[in-house]
Nucleic acid binder design. Structure first.
Lengths: 205, 205
DNA sequence: TGTACATCAGTGAACGCGCGTTCACTGATGTAC
DNA sequence: TGTACATCAGTGAACGCGCGTTCACTGATGTAC
């Protein structure tokens, strides 16, 4: 063996990371294998030594992205109001204008619905893990009520982000955030983060 | 002139109707001009006598689809509880399993966010019309509060539908509907429509 | 009323291009002696 | 310690295919005489 065993794994990780950025920015169909390999600093030919197909890469990318978000949420539980904190971080201009990091659902969920049932099954498993972690920071008494609220909150957040990115009017985009904050949070917590506050508490990656 | 003036307009309408079905089912990038023309009973060559580009057709299709939905909502205002009726009709298996008719947002909004600002401006205008009609059936006193609720409700509905279509598990898909019904409606109204009820009040087209 | 004709809606083949995937190869690497 | 070598991660050109778009044409139509 003339390469250390972790060498190929590191390259594979770079490809998944590159795909994570491009798929979330441009969508699945909008991103070519060539572009992903180029983003990873590689040439296109090597792709199939790492993945069976572009679709297989998408599923691995989704699992990783959702897993990373779940992990960052779990760590936010340490905050004194993790539910409000999560919503404020989700519904902000930084998240809207940089889809390459952040939640993969707004830009990819619709394309997932057109994949084969098997592929959608892998996505479903990753989504369940994510949901379990959102549920864990949900206020509420019974686990079933918290799961219910986690599902509804995630639906609302991803729908709002999708709309906010689609409209051309920045004011309407902010109004979408504001309306959803009011719907999800008690009145006194629904203030948007000021740029100053956002700078003091930068988003961990 | 050897064709009646309405002849070409009728063909154009057929193309827009065909595009409405295919774009909503397969997405924008997932639908070819050839497939649209074939769905309309035509050959591909004639397309550019009607539209400047595939993107121009998308924008016209979106305006029409959102306009049709707005119209059907306005007519639902006649019902005794239009808000509940709208939500029950949105969050149902028929809507989920037949994306070709119904709301264009779940399957197309993410792709709109990747278009040029000009194109997104046309979409934004159509969305504002739709929002105005959703607002009109919103319970609540002040218009600004009703608009706020209309925006949040639409975000939630389209996010929930996108997720419900993406997951492979029918039970989870139903659980998403149920969770969102509970979040949006008072408890006693949040029952899903039974198949019998759904048959008695079929969806108008 | 009947026919020749000008119009233009729609046809169908072709275009250049980028896609996902394949494959013969190259050359950097750790090992064996 | 130094060198020859086997391995295989990564290269780069090529593949068939479908895409959005163009264009020379065909033939159904309503009109003019």
């Amino acid at each position: 063996m003339r390469y250390k065993p972790e060498h190929k794994q590191a390259t594979r990780d770079r490809i998944v990371a590159a795909a994570g950025r491009l798929f979330r920015r441009q969508g699945y169909q909008g991103t070519g294998v060539d572009a992903i390999m180029s983003e990873a600093g590689l040439t296109p030919g090597g792709f199939y030594a790492h993945f069976a197909s572009k679709e297989a890469l998408l599923l691995e990318t989704l699992s990783r992205c959702l897993g990373e978000r779940a992990a960052s949420i779990s760590q936010a539980v340490a905050s004194d109001d993790p539910f409000t904190a999560m919503i404020q971080r989700y519904l902000c201009a930084l998240h809207r204008d940089d889809p390459g990091t952040g939640c993969p659902l707004p830009n990819l969920a619709a394309e997932i619905s057109r994949l084969t049932p098997g592929a959608r099954g892998k996505f479903t498993a990753a989504l369940e893990h994510y949901l379990a972690d959102v549920q864990s920071l949900m206020p509420g008494v019974s686990p079933s009520k918290r799961r219910e609220r986690a599902i509804a909150t995630l639906s609302t957040l991803m729908g709002a982000m999708t709309l906010a990115r689609a409209v051309s009017d920045k004011a309407l985009s902010e109004e979408i955030f504001e309306s959803v904050r009011h719907a999800l949070l008690p009145a006194q917590k629904a203030r948007p983060m000021s740029p100053t506050t956002a700078r003091k508490k930068p988003r961990r990656r």
